Measured scan of single mutants.
Amino acid sequence: MSIQHFRVALIPFFAAFCLPVFAHPETLVKVKDAEDQLGARVGYIELDLNSGKILESFRPEERFPMMSTFKVLLCGAVLSRVDAGQEQLGRRIHYSQNDLVEYSPVTEKHLTDGMTVRELCSAAITMSDNTAANLLLTTIGGPKELTAFLHNMGDHVTRLDRWEPELNEAIPNDERDTTMPAAMATTLRKLLTGELLTLASRQQLIDWMEADKVAGPLLRSALPAGWFIADKSGAGERGSRGIIAALGPDGKPSRIVVIYTTGSQATMDERNRQIAEIGASLIKHW
């Protein structure tokens, strides 16, 4: 067993022997301040990774656009098919120029040779490549099948209805392509620590998230040296922004954090800054 596999296998073990965790309302004060600064709703939840206990939450059962955070769930569904012998990570998928959609920095470079399922998941999570996500959605049967996968996990809230990039439209009061912070946090925890996926697939999923290259201005910008984070960000229309993450000190994750916002007129930089400040408060009061 590799060191990384050992780390993920012992996530519940280490967490069980940690000192009790206590909620700190100071972080919620910052979440509410972010709402004021952005002029928009902000949803927040913080779960203990081992027990699933909610440590703090704000608007945990209000719907927010998922945006690209759905790509972690998508690759979880792909990995479940791999575990069941219905898919192979090494299978190569070929596609054409007509398949390319807006923001496809990886797939646009491989029109000639195609990409493997493993490479597509890596591109979808680490670079948020939209064509990679659409190609992977095709392998599982489309958005409705991802929703069905989530329902089978016990998540009857999260739903995907459309493809990239239309799913980022974020129309107010439109339930399409949305989740709730509580539902997303619980589902992410199941994917990373539950028995739904094999140990190898859980490790692969967290490795992809740990290698995320496009979430630097968010929670990662607030992390002290030595902290662990595996995350996936999302951005959408109407001032929408979000991030889902597993993080913790001492090089291992111990909490799940989900943050979503929508309806702001603020710039992307300002949305990023507010999420980073929430992260800084979380870490300060850990």
Score class of each variant (00 low, 15 high):
P253L: 10
S122E: 15
P20Q: 15
E175R: 12
E108T: 09
T147Y: 04
Y260W: 02
G76L: 04
R176I: 05
F14W: 07
L146S: 01
N173C: 13
I283G: 04
E35T: 03
S128H: 00
P224S: 06
I140A: 07
R176Q: 14
A170C: 13
P20I: 02
F64H: 01
P12G: 12
T139G: 12
R59T: 02
G142V: 01
E145T: 11
V42T: 06
S68Y: 00
V106P: 01
A225R: 13
V31D: 01
K213N: 11
L136V: 08
V78F: 04
V82H: 09
A16G: 15
S104V: 04
L218W: 02
P105R: 05
I259R: 00
K144W: 09
I3P: 13
S264P: 03
I283C: 10
A133Q: 00
E56Y: 05
A245F: 03
G114N: 05
N134Y: 03
A123I: 04
L199H: 13
V72C: 07
H156G: 15
A222S: 14
G263P: 04
A183V: 13
N152E: 15
Q265R: 13
G76C: 06
G141V: 04
K232M: 00
E175K: 12
E35F: 02
N134G: 03
E195V: 07
A235W: 01
T138R: 15
V31Y: 01
L196S: 15
E237V: 10
A246Q: 05
R202L: 05
V117W: 01
D83Y: 02
R41Y: 11
R176M: 10
C121M: 08
G114H: 05
W163F: 14
G239W: 01
Y95K: 01
I283N: 03
F149G: 04
D33P: 01
L205Y: 02
R238I: 07
T27K: 05
G194K: 09
T267W: 05
H156Y: 15
K32A: 14
E169W: 14
Y260V: 06
I229L: 07
T131N: 04
I206W: 13
Q37T: 12
L47P: 00
F14M: 11
D113W: 07
A245H: 00
I171T: 14
C18S: 11
E277I: 13
T126C: 11
E175M: 14
K53Y: 13
W208D: 05
I229M: 08
I45H: 05
